[in-house]
C-alpha cells in the first residue's frame, strides 16, 4: 500500500461534508475537554487551563453552539453527501451484519475476511447512528441545563443523567472512531481531509461503493 501516493484516486467527500465533519469533531473535542474536569476529578487540573470553572463553562457553551452547526452546514452545502449518508445508514443488508465478526478479528490484527461494504461500511453506519443518538441526547439535555428556567423540575433532573450518559456513549464512539481512522484505516483520513481516497482503498474497504462507481463511470462520462 505504500504506493498509494501516486495512485489513482476517487472522490469520496465534498467540501461541505468535510467542513461539517471537522466542525463537529473540533466542537466535540473542545466540549469534551472542557467537561472532563467536572466529569471526573481526575482531570481537575484542566480547570486552570480554562482560567477556572467559569472559563471552562464559557468555552463549553461556545463549543456547544458550534456543536449544533454541522447538520445545517451539511444540509446547506452538501445536500448530495447528506442524502447519500442518510440513505446509507438506513440501509442494512446481510453484508452489513457479516461485517462485525470479521471486523473484530481484524481490529485485533488477526486475519479476517470482511464482506464487500457500501459507501459507509457497517461500522461507520453504527458509528453514525451512535453519533446521531448521542448528539441528540447531548444537545437536548445540554439546552435544558443551559436554560433550566424554561423547563419543569422533573425534566431538568433527567437532563443531567442524559447528558452524562450521552457523553459516555459519545466519548466511546469518538475514541473508537478516531482510533480506527488513525490506526486501522489510515487512508480514510485522506478522504475526510482532502476529499478523495485511492481506488485501492475504495475497493478494499467499500467494495460495493467501488463497484457502483465502476458501473456508473461510463454513464457519467456520457453525461459529462
Amino acid at each position: 500500500m505504500n504506493k498509494s501516493g501516486n495512485q489513482k484516486t476517487v472522490k469520496r467527500f465534498n467540501l461541505g461534508f468535510r467542513i461539517s465533519h471537522w466542525v463537529n469533531a473540533a466542537a466535540f473535542f473542545v466540549l469534551y475537554i472542557s467537561a472532563l474536569p467536572m466529569y471526573t476529578e481526575f482531570f481537575d487540573w484542566l480547570y486552570p487551563v480554562f482560567g477556572g470553572p467559569a472559563g471552562a463553562r464559557l468555552v463549553h457553551r461556545i463549543a456547544a453552539v458550534a456543536f449544533m452547526l454541522p447538520l445545517p452546514i451539511m444540509i446547506i452545502f452538501d445536500w448530495k453527501g447528506f442524502s447519500n449518508w442518510a440513505k446509507n445508514i438506513f440501509s442494512w443488508k446481510k453484508h452489513d451484519l457479516q461485517f462485525f465478526p470479521q471486523f473484530m478479528k481484524e481490529f485485533f490484527g488477526m486475519k479476517a475476511k470482511v464482506p464487500k461494504q457500501d459507501f459507509f461500511n457497517a461500522g461507520e453506519k453504527i458509528n453514525s447512528w451512535l453519533m446521531i443518538i448521542t448528539t441528540i441526547m447531548l444537545i437536548c439535555s445540554g439546552l435544558i441545563m443551559w436554560f433550566p428556567q424554561y423547563f419543569p423540575y422533573g425534566i431538568i433532573m433527567w437532563a443531567y443523567p442524559m447528558h452524562s450518559i450521552g457523553l459516555g456513549l459519545a466519548a466511546a464512539v469518538a475514541i473508537g472512531h478516531i482510533y480506527m481512522s488513525l490506526v486501522t484505516a489510515k487512508p480514510s483520513m485522506r478522504g475526510i481531509i482532502k476529499g478523495d481516497v485511492s481506488e485501492e482503498y475504495a475497493k478494499d474497504h467499500h467494495g460495493r461503493w467501488y463497484d457502483e462507481l465502476q458501473a456508473a463511470e461510463p454513464k457519467k462520462k456520457k453525461h459529462a
Partner: peptide
C-alpha cells in the same frame, strides 16, 4: 450513568490500547 460512563471511557481506552498492542 456516571460510574458506567467512566467505566466505558476506561473500557474504550483500554480497548484502543489493547488493539494497538495486539495489532
Amino acid at each position: 450513568a456516571q460510574p458506567i460512563g467512566k467505566m466505558m471511557l476506561g473500557a474504550t481506552t483500554m480497548a484502543v490500547i489493547g488493539s494497538f498492542i495486539a495489532t
